[in-house]
């Protein structure tokens, strides 16, 4: 049961919660596709506090709340407002909880959403904390795999790119470790999946790692590609040495299984060429769209509608 529960880490969501979220997401998707107007969160207010830039996550949370008949309050640039005046996050949260029914927060420091949930009597949803977790992205990633393949168990998944700083892959790998899947981590040495994530994996998951993308590509069902984030590098030469390592174009897709899908949390830069967008394997825009039914499901379950 997710009623009044905060979702800070993917560990806050049990396996049975995940199946319930998926079935509610299916219902939301049907309602969206039927153009049905929903009013189940009429009178409810969601506060968004984004201390870091966001396009998809913020828009999809706000859109989801509006789609359910609720309303949204937000600070356009929270970093230059309360933080600039020296207010602690704890105080900002105490204020925000009295103005809203649910708080969605993105923050550059790890553990920020957990701290927020400690100071709020209203549920808090983590929309990304530093290089920590991004649980709602993980849920929509899992939902996307399930929509394409009908199940998650048995899938062979390649995670490609920046596995060190990308929080989406951290949360996703932790979540996948509860399924019977095989994951291959493909990254340059300097962007390897951190040990603190690998040591938390469950026993079911089989994980291997390598640096080369171009081998046995036809073995994977899912390619989860991430952007190599320029802003994370202090050494420009180091960035130049890894950028463009894993560029996916139509030729690369030709080496994949026919029904393999390419996922990406977006934004992409040049790791997936625009020509791939038109191939049936490109799942990333659909994946971004699934953020709406999944977040609608979460908001409706948390707010008890």
């Amino acid at each position: 049961m997710l009623k009044n529960k905060s979702i800070v880490s993917i560990d806050d969501v049990s396996e049975s919660d995940i199946s319930e979220i998926f079935s509610v997401s299916d219902r939301m998707l049907n309602a969206l596709e039927a153009g049905k107007k929903l009013e189940m969160l009429n009178g409810k207010i969601m506060a968004t506090l984004f201390y870091e830039p966001s396009t998809r996550t913020r828009l999809s949370f706000e859109s989801s709340m509006h789609r359910l008949g609720g309303s949204v309050i937000s600070v356009s640039d929270v970093k230059s407002s309360s933080v600039a005046k020296g207010e602690t996050l704890a105080d900002t949260i105490r204020m925000a909880e009295s103005y809203s029914d649910v708080i969605v927060i993105r923050h550059p420091l790890e553990g920020a959403a957990r701290l927020a949930s400690k100071f709020s009597t209203k549920p808090v949803i983590n929309a990304g904390d530093g290089s920590g977790q991004h649980p709602t992205q993980t849920l929509l990633d899992l939902y996307t795999m399930r929509k394409y393949f009908g199940k998650i168990d048995g899938l062979r998944i390649a995670m490609v790119g920046d596995l060190r700083y990308g929080r989406t892959v951290h949360s996703l790998l932790l979540a996948l470790s509860n399924f019977d899947v095989e994951v291959t981590l493909i990254s340059p040495q300097i962007l390897k999946m951190p040990e603190h994530i690998r040591e938390r994996l469950g026993k079911n998951i089989k994980v291997t790692s390598r640096e080369n993308l171009d081998e046995k590509m036809d073995e994977f069902d899912v390619f989860y590609v991430t952007r190599i984030q320029k802003e994370r590098f202090t050494d420009q030469n180091e960035y130049n040495s890894v950028i463009g390592l894993y560029s996916i174009d139509a030729d690369t897709v030709g080496k994949m299984k026919k029904n393999a899908i390419i996922m990406h949390p977006l934004p992409r830069v040049d790791e997936i060429k625009p020509e791939v967008d038109y191939l049936p394997n490109a799942a990333y825009f659909k994946q971004a769209f699934y953020g709406i039914p999944v977040r609608m499901a979460l908001l409706s379950m948390i707010l008890g509608a």
Binding site: T88, L109, E110, G111
Partner: peptide, 15 residues
């Protein structure tokens, strides 16, 4: 003290 420099407990918060 949390050894992760990026942890929220290492900045000025009342926890």
């Amino acid at each position: 003290k949390c050894p992760n420099q990026g942890c929220i407990t290492n900045v000025k918060e009342p926890v």
